[in-house]
Deep mutational scan, measured.
Amino acid sequence: MSGIALSRLAQERKAWRKDHPFGFVAVPTKNPDGTMNLMNWECAIPGKKGTPWEGGLFKLRMLFKDDYPSSPPKCKFEPPLFHPNVYPSGTVCLSILEEDKDWRPAITIKQILLGIQELLNEPNIQDPAQAEAYTIYCQNRVEYEKRVRAQAKKFAPS
């Protein structure tokens, strides 16, 4: 494992614990031996107030490669969400998460999670990743928002 990646992720964890947006979660997972795995984080993004996503808490896994922060983490909703920019596998399609697009090593975990929260309610229809959600979003916004509200209710924190 890269010392650069681990040191950056340790800084990220410290900064997150000191200050993070209300309702968001970002925690490194534990290895079988109980030690912390900084390369694999369990996160959760709350649906934004005043949107059909409100009330939901959407679980996301963030996986970092050894060359982080040169390369972005892979962000994957578990379980996958109904959304035009979420692949059926759950992987998020967002330009700041793509090395050859808008990724920059200075982007923080907090910025990534806030960017994904923004994307939930403002899909990028130029870059669809899920045919069904994309089609319904474009053709029947009322039905799309109904499905999103049902999903938010399903993923409401207990």
Rank of each mutant, 00 (worst) to 15 (best):
K101S: 13
Q151T: 04
Y137C: 03
Q139I: 08
E145P: 05
R17L: 01
A156V: 10
I112L: 15
K49A: 03
D67V: 11
Q117R: 11
S71D: 15
N140G: 03
A133D: 03
W16K: 03
T35V: 03
K18D: 04
A5L: 09
K101C: 14
A129W: 00
R141N: 13
N40Y: 08
G3L: 10
P157I: 05
W53N: 08
C43K: 01
Y68H: 07
H83Y: 01
K30A: 09
F155T: 05
T108D: 09
T51I: 03
P72E: 09
I112Q: 13
K76W: 12
P88V: 08
S2R: 04
L120R: 03
G90H: 00
P52F: 10
G115F: 00
L38P: 04
P128K: 00
R13N: 01
P84D: 07
K146E: 14
P32D: 14
P72T: 05
P123H: 01
G23K: 08
N37R: 13
Y137M: 11
V142N: 15
S158A: 12
Q11K: 11
L97M: 12
R147Y: 08
N124V: 03
K110W: 04
A131M: 06
S7Y: 07
S71R: 08
S2V: 15
Y144S: 02
Y68N: 04
F58A: 06
D67P: 10
V148R: 02
E145R: 14
P88H: 13
K30Y: 07
T29P: 04
L119Y: 14
C138N: 15
Y137H: 04
L120T: 07
I109V: 10
Y134L: 05
W103C: 07
P84R: 02
A15W: 08
R147E: 10
P105H: 01
G115W: 00
I136P: 01
V86E: 04
G55S: 10
R17P: 04
W103L: 01
A152Q: 05
A15I: 10
K76F: 15
P79R: 15
I45Y: 06
P52S: 13
Q111A: 14
F58M: 07
N121Q: 13
G90S: 03
R141M: 15
I109T: 06
G115N: 01
L38G: 02
Q126S: 13
D100Q: 11
G55L: 10
E78S: 11
F22S: 04
W16N: 01
Q139S: 07
